Simulated assay, not measured.
Amino acid sequence: MKLVEIPRVKRISKQDFLKDYLKPQLPVVIEEFNGDWAAHSKWSFAYMKEVAGDKIVPLYDDRPVHHEDGFNEPHAQMKMSEYIDLLKSEPTKFRIFLWNILKEVPVLQKDFSYPDFGIRLLKGVPMLFFGGENSHTFMHYDIDLANIFHFHFEGEKECVLFPQSENKHLYKVPYSIITHESIDFSNPDFEKWPALKNANGFKTGLKHGEVLYIPEGYWHYMKYKTAGFSMSLRALARNPFNFAHAAYNIFIMRHFDVLMRKLKGQRWIDWKNEKAIFRTNKLISQKP
C-alpha cells in the first residue's frame, strides 16, 4: 500500500476548509479545534462513567460476519461503568460504535455545539465510538456516504483511509460496505492480498482534541493504539452520484443482502467473500 500522511493544520477557517478540503474531497486533521467545547476538558472515561454508567451499551468485536447476525446486531451488552472499567484494566476487542449520545445521554449535548464548517451537519445523530487497546474496525465506508468529522477524546488511534477510486485494489465484498474481513490493514500480508500493493490511500494518528475530516464515501479503518473514544458528526453527501449511491445502499442493497442471508444462510456470506477475492485478482491480472 502507498499511504501518505493526511495533511495537518493547527486551525482552519471555514473558507479555507471549503476551498482546500471539502470541495476537492480531501481529508485533513485539525489539531487544535476547540469551538468553546466543554467536552475538551470534561470528556474522559471517568466523566462518561459518571454520566452514563448505568446505561446498557451494545458491544462489538472483530469476529467475522455470520449469516445469523442481524444488521448492526451487537455481540454483547454491558453496563457502561463495567465496560469502562474493562477498558482501563486490560486490552479488549469489545467496541461501541454508532451510539447516539443525544438519545442515550442528553446531558452530554450541553458539552458541545455544532461547528460551522460551511456544510450543514445533521443534528440528530452525534455518534460515539469506544474501543479497547488494539481493537479495530473492519475497513469500511459509511452506508450513507456522509461527510464525517471525527473528534477524538482520550487515548490514541491510527486511521487508514482510501477514496472510492481505490475499490479495485481493496477486495471489496459485493453487496456490502466492507472489504474482506481477513485483511489486517495495520500490517497487511501482501503475499495473500497482492492487489493491496497498488492501493493509494492516507494515514494518520489521532490524539485527544484532534479532528479528522473524512470525505464522502471514503473507506476507513480505525485501530485503537490505546483505549479511547471519539465522536462523529456528519453531513449528507453533496455529490449527486454519492447521494444516489447512498440511497441505493440504504433502500435496496441492504435489504437485498438481508433477504439473501435468510434464503442462503452462511453460503451467501462465503460466496461474497470468495467473490471479493476473485474479482480483485481478476482485475489486477488484466493488462492495463
Rank of each mutant, 00 (worst) to 15 (best):
E82A: 13
H136W: 07
I250N: 07
P240H: 10
P7I: 00
K157R: 10
D16E: 12
G132R: 01
K88H: 03
I277D: 10
N273V: 07
K203L: 10
K10I: 09
I252Y: 11
M1R: 01
G228M: 07
Y171C: 08
L59S: 11
W37Q: 04
W193Q: 03
K275H: 12
H208K: 10
A46L: 07
D62S: 12
M222F: 15
L3N: 05
S44P: 04
Y47L: 04
D16W: 02
K110A: 15
R279W: 10
W193L: 03
A39N: 04
F153P: 04
L98G: 13
F243H: 14
M1T: 03
L98K: 15
P240W: 06
E216V: 03
L259P: 01
F112V: 02
P215L: 04
D61R: 04
P64S: 08
G155N: 05
H152T: 08
K123Q: 14
T280Y: 06
T92K: 03
F251V: 12
F149I: 06
K79Y: 12
F33P: 01
D69V: 00
R234S: 06
W219G: 07
H169S: 08
C159I: 15
I143C: 01
K264C: 04
R234K: 06
T137W: 02
A38Y: 04
Y83M: 00
D61N: 15
Y213W: 05
F45Y: 12
D142F: 00
K197C: 09
S230N: 06
A246R: 01
H220W: 07
I143D: 05
K225G: 04
G132P: 01
K287H: 13
R120T: 14
L236H: 13
R238N: 10
N273L: 14
F71R: 12
I178V: 14
K157I: 05
I12G: 02
S285Q: 15
E31S: 11
N273Q: 13
D257T: 09
P194S: 11
G228W: 04
L108R: 05
K123N: 10
K287A: 14
Q286T: 15
H66V: 06
K207H: 10
G205C: 09
H40Q: 14
I12M: 01
H152E: 07
M78Q: 12
K10G: 13
E32K: 12
R279P: 02
L161H: 07
I277H: 11
K168C: 06
W43Q: 02
Y83Q: 00
R8F: 00
F190N: 09
R234H: 01
F33C: 06
G132M: 01
V28T: 02
N167W: 10
E191Y: 14
F71Y: 15
K88Y: 00
G205S: 13
R279K: 14
V211M: 13
Q286N: 15
Q15D: 14
L102S: 14
S135G: 00
P106H: 06
L170I: 01
K287V: 14
W271F: 12
F153Q: 04
N273T: 08
A195N: 11
V125H: 13
P174V: 08
Y141A: 02
